[in-house]
């Protein structure tokens, strides 16, 4: 039995959109995060991955389903949320925006401690968090303001601010996509070292399958509010089964042996999720007539489906009629 830290069960998050339409941003997600792993949640912009991350953090409330932390469903009363947020921390895409321009580095990192009332030896904890985040000597950074730091340093401050609370789970939403290529690797190294040394579990949300490849133990691919494929990183990347995953993977520059699959158009908007397989309108299998030849086109167009294990391996599962036919 694996040690599940956090899981979502039948999670739905909806937003009111224009003219009374309802956007189903997260549309039935069952996802488990195992203690000590790095799980990458991959998908195009607008697929609901950020909403899913925010819901896991308790910043959005599910319309249906639940988020369970250490086996218990999370609650939304103020005192529970405050404690929960001491255990689950987040890192943002844009570290400039994530830091209050009028707070010094010290204040930014210490704020979490003060909110969580872990004020004893505050300075020491702040210094420790900064130096663990690679800002050494930490005292040199205490009185600096965010605009006096480089992008990479800012992200280190944000990470230090999260790690100072010694959380069990770190949710990182596109943690390096706003950074220069040269510092991306350093920040990713830092995050991996946190897993090894501080024992934190990381959920990293990204549109970049290449990045997921670099740091993740497991990958979950999300499309239009639902996980369409999930599995160990190596397995999923070496033998992707879902046509959407294949398309995403084929355009990663490092993957040269695959023929590039360019998907038609953009993902439909989440107020109008297609019936049947939600990917069928853009699916290369349907387009090329492959689905018709396999005799599953009817089902692709009309029959919704859930994740199912691939070839008996319960670690790798996929939601595609062509695979589970």
């Amino acid at each position: 039995m694996t040690d599940v830290l956090l899981e979502t069960r039948g999670l739905h998050v909806r937003f009111a959109a224009r003219r009374g339409a309802v956007a189903r941003a997260v549309d039935g997600v069952d996802l488990a995060i195992v203690r000590g792993e790095v799980l990458a949640l991959v998908g195009e912009s607008g697929c609901g991955k950020t909403t899913l991350a925010r819901t896991i953090l308790g910043l959005e409330r599910p319309a249906a389903g639940e988020v369970r932390f250490e086996g218990e469903p999370i609650r939304y009363d103020a005192s529970y949320l405050r404690r929960y947020r001491g255990r689950v921390q987040m890192v943002f895409q844009d570290p400039m925006g994530a830091l209050n321009p009028r707070q010094t580095v010290y204040e930014a990192v210490a704020e979490g401690l003060r909110i969580q009332k872990r004020g004893d030896d505050e300075a020491e904890r702040v210094a420790h968090a900064l130096s663990r985040a690679g800002l050494r000597p930490p005292e040199r950074f205490f009185e600096l303001y965010p605009y006096e730091l480089s992008g990479g340093q800012r992200q280190r401050v944000v990470i230090a601010g999260a790690m100072v609370l010694e959380p069990s789970l770190l949710v990182a939403d596109e943690p390096v996509s706003s950074l220069d290529a040269s510092v991306r690797g350093e920040i990713l190294q830092l995050m991996l070292s946190l897993v090894r040394e501080a024992g934190v579990t990381i959920l990293v949300v990204t549109h970049d399958l290449g990045l997921a490849w670099n740091i993740a133990d497991r990958i979950a691919v999300m499309y239009l509010g639902r996980i369409v494929e999930e599995g160990p990183a190596e397995e999923l990347l070496s033998s992707p089964r879902h046509p959407y995953t294949r398309a995403l993977l084929s355009v990663v520059p490092e993957v040269e042996e695959m023929e590039q699959v360019i998907l038609r158009g953009e993902a439909p908007d989440p107020t109008r999720i297609p019936a049947g397989c939600r990917f069928h309108e853009r699916c290369p299998l349907v387009d090329s007539g492959e689905a018709a030849r396999l005799g599953i086109e009817e089902r692709c167009r009309g029959e919704d489906l859930a994740l199912a294990p691939v070839g008996g391996l319960d670690a790798h599962s996929v939601a595609c009629h062509a695979v589970s036919r």
Partner: peptide, 14 residues
């Protein structure tokens, strides 16, 4: 819309 408001919330601020 600034992220630091969300981050402050995520740290447990009311």
């Amino acid at each position: 819309r600034e992220d630091y408001l969300t981050l402050a919330r995520a740290k447990g601020l009311r």
